[in-house]
Amino acid sequence: MSSPASEARLEPFRLRGANFNLLVLRLLDPRVEVIVPALADQFRRAPGFLRNAPIVLGLDDLDPVAAPDFNDLTAQLRAVQIAPIGTTGGGPELRAAAQAAGLPPLRAAGGETPQPIAQPAPVPIPEPLPPSGWQPTLVVDQAVRAGQRIWAQGGDLVVRGTVNPGAEVIADGNVHVYGTLRGRAIAGGADNLNARIFALNFEPELVSIAGYYAVRDGLGDAPLGRPVQVCLIGESMRFDRLG
C-alpha cells in the first residue's frame, strides 16, 4: 500500500479524459453591445445564477461572415462573471476568429453539432437546476442490519425494510422507513433544517435532524410503535402521528 504522497512523487500528473455538462450560450446576434445587456436583463431576476459558470459559445446561428468581436465579448462576459471557455459549431472563419481570441473550438460528445434553430428565439433559460450536488433518492429494498450504515449523500433515503437496532440510516435530505425503525435515523446532514424523518413503525434508538438529536430516553411522549413524522420546529423536535 503506497500513500498518495509517495505516488505523487513518482508521477507528477495524470492525463484523463472526462465528460462535463456545460451550458451553451447560443449567439443569435453578432453585436456585443446587444448580447451583453440582454444577458444581464435575462438574469437580473436570478443574480449570480451564472456567476463564474464556465460557458461555451454556440456559433451555429451566426452569419458565417459577420463574426462578433470575440475579444470584446469575452472581456464583457468576464466583467459580469461569466467565463467563456470555448466555442461549439459555426463555420471555419467564425471558429478561427474565436480561436484568435483564446476560445478553442470544442466538439460535442459523439461529434454531433446542435441543430440550428430556424427562428431567432430569446436566449434560452435553462431549466432551474436543483441545488448543486443534488443526488437522486437512494432506495434500499432490504432490511438494514446491525452494524450497517447507509448514507444517501446529497439526497433522500427510502428504506423498504426495517432498520434494525445497531443500524444507521443517514440522508442529507429526508429519511423514509417503510418498516420498523429500530436503529438510528439521521436526516438533513449538517444544515438542512427542513429535512424530516418518516417511519411506518417508530421505535428508534436515536433520531437526528440537521445535528439536533433525541435519544430513545429523550423521546418523551413521542408516539412509539406508530407511524410517525419527525420534524424540527426551531430547536426542538416534533413527533407527529401520521395518518
Binding site: 442490519r145 446491525a146 452494524g147 434494525n164 437496532p165 445497531g166
Partner: peptide
C-alpha cells in the same frame, strides 16, 4: 443483535 450483524456480513 449479533446474528443480525452476521447476516449483514
Amino acid at each position: 443483535r449479533d446474528s443480525d450483524r452476521i447476516l449483514g456480513v
